[in-house]
Nucleic acid binder design. Structure first.
Lengths: 345, 345
DNA sequence: CTGTTAGCGCGTTCAA
DNA sequence: TTGAACGCGCTAACAG
């Protein structure tokens, strides 16, 4: 028999389909008893409207698209989780695409989503020029997450990247370090750029010397952290501290120091952006910059929904706060019991 | 002007809409030159068919739904990644819902997806009775992932749970352990049940004693691992080895041993299900049961697509292979260099 | 091989 | 306040 259609509900309630539609959507004026009859009929038939047909007619799909490079990465997982939570409250569905970082996949992903007539777009990967983006998007509202696209979209949201690195530099400086090395991410990425810039600025503010040999660029992987770490450990006059721009880079660097039998924090202080959930359990426990990744998702979704409502194309930018978590690897004294408390929390 | 519709393409090519449709979808016989003209017209107008309208007509949405409890967990992230990869090859879209573990949310999630007329369903969380499931699903093919639902759906896919724990028991036995403790997950979960059963069976096969006090049930969290670990460390006659049913539980147990200053593997051997990506970097590095979580996703998607094609409602069950990764925490000798190689790979 | 007709299930006119 | 008619964009059935 198939599921009940609006037609069936109308018949049963003894009204026309258009009246039934009005009753169920609460549109226009109509007699209370008519509405009641329709609602009852709908319930009895356990009527469920077809989003397909509805979208075709209303030109709204109640769907938003999310593009991330790899959903299996903890960061994007958390972001997606946050997005989902907000969409849920507003009865929107989430269409997820993880596109890899390949520009043509990203392009394809966007085209697919736009074909689907998503009502809005959340994009967290952006190896596409702003102009192309605008052309693709047309009038579909889009919020860029983590990877910014100035000159495109109705909103941008990112971490306080520069501030995060500044916290790390300042903290190391307070420990008395002057020769601080920096291991960053790709410079064609927002986070890569902003964190490096944050480092350079913070060093300058403190009047600390920046040596070219101590500033490395890597990819966002453990392997890359290891490679760059090995290189850094080989320079003639080793730095006394190292900042890495991500948790993966820090793990790679940690591996490198173990390989070289360099003691942390004794011979080298190590701190990083990204507070890995197991950071308190590493030995030494890792001092890091923490933030609420899930909040990026919720804020991004809110921004998008707001923009969809007002139709206000004024682009807004939002930053998610970061904070310093002091543990052992920077040289702080850190009660092991505290680590347990953290990890159990 | 809006995007071009099929109608427009047909006009420009000088044919009827239905012919245009046939040309673009490669259905039926038609003159090569006609087809060419249509294809050209479509390209010139950069025509993109509306999936909405198409679905309404064909009753296929080219969309599949995935329900997971929390996408921010690494396991589900990897599964989702695998699913996505396969769907992509077959031009299906993924609608993701992370439903928490709350039964009513799960139910709502399923209803939403079914309303959307997803062509198939992948469900990785199942606090719903099989009967209710069947009623909800109707004729929509569904594959259950990790959390099985016997008596429902066209397919079930899970890890070799019992074999995984058996590998751990056997390995500990080879190290000479006899008093082996077990810290498991919730018994209303497939993995929780199967892993416990695997433990009991493996112990029996080896003629090893199972003491009630040494078999604990927890949740899948670090905190739970810590609590149960503290309890286990307090029994009068401590076990010489501990198996945990998940990586989180192992981390919690590890924290507990540090709190009690119990040396691993010297005073207690610790091994677990789930090979955390940073396991080689922990001290001691963790011996664990590894598997390819992404493969769960790809296999699940393949199973579903196959079932959707044949319309064969015969339910199949698949198991994803597991393997033992020997490191230090079980008492094996483990070259630190090997850890580095692993982590960098 | 191609065109015409008729919906898929809705929401929104426009007229009563 | 309600109903009839129409069309969103597409494809399937039936003619020719």
């Amino acid at each position: 028999m198939g599921p009940a259609r609006l037609h069936d509900v109308a018949r049963r309630a003894g009204v026309s389909p258009s009246t039934a539609s009005r009753a169920l959507n609460g549109v226009g004026e109509l007699a209370p008893q008519t509405r009641a009859a329709v609602v009852r009929a709908a319930a009895e038939l356990s009527y469920r409207p077809s989003p397909q047909a509805r979208s075709l007619r209303t030109r709204r799909s109640m769907t938003i698209g999310l593009v991330v490079p790899t959903i299996s990465h903890a960061f994007y997982g958390a972001v997606t989780h946050g997005v989902q939570a907000v969409l849920d409250e507003h009865d929107y569905r989430l269409v997820l695409v993880d596109s890899t970082e390949d520009p043509v996949s990203v392009r394809r992903a966007l085209e697919t989503l736009l074909d689907q007539r998503v009502d809005g777009l959340l994009v967290s990967t952006a190896p596409i020029a702003a102009a192309d983006f605008n052309e693709l998007l047309g009038s579909t509202p889009c919020v860029f997450v983590d990877e910014l696209a100035p000159g495109s979209g109705v909103g941008n949201i990112a971490l306080e990247n520069a501030r995060g690195v500044t916290l790390l530099v300042d903290h190391l400086a307070e420990h008395g370090h002057r020769r601080i090395a920096y291991m960053g991410g790709p410079l064609d990425r927002t986070s890569g750029r902003e964190r490096l810039q944050g480092f350079l600025d913070a060093m300058e503010r403190r009047d600390l010397p920046v040596e070219q040999a101590l500033v490395r660029e890597g990819r966002w992987t453990i392997a890359s952290g290891f490679e760059e770490g090995m290189a850094l450990m080989s320079v003639p006059d080793r730095p006394s501290a190292l900042i890495t721009a991500s948790g993966e880079l820090a793990l790679g660097a940690l591996a490198a120091t173990r390989r070289r039998r360099i003691a942390i924090p004794g011979e080298l202080a190590l701190v990083c952006f990204d507070d890995l959930y197991f950071a308190p359990l590493l030995q030494p426990s890792l001092t890091a910059v923490a933030y609420d990744a899930r909040a990026m998702g919720t804020e991004a979704a809110r921004l998008l929904l707001a923009a969809m409502e007002d139709g206000d194309p004024r682009s807004s930018e939002l930053r998610i706060a970061v904070s310093l978590v002091r543990r052992r690897s920077c040289g702080c004294v850190y009660d092991p019991a505290a680590a347990l408390a953290e990890v159990v929390a």
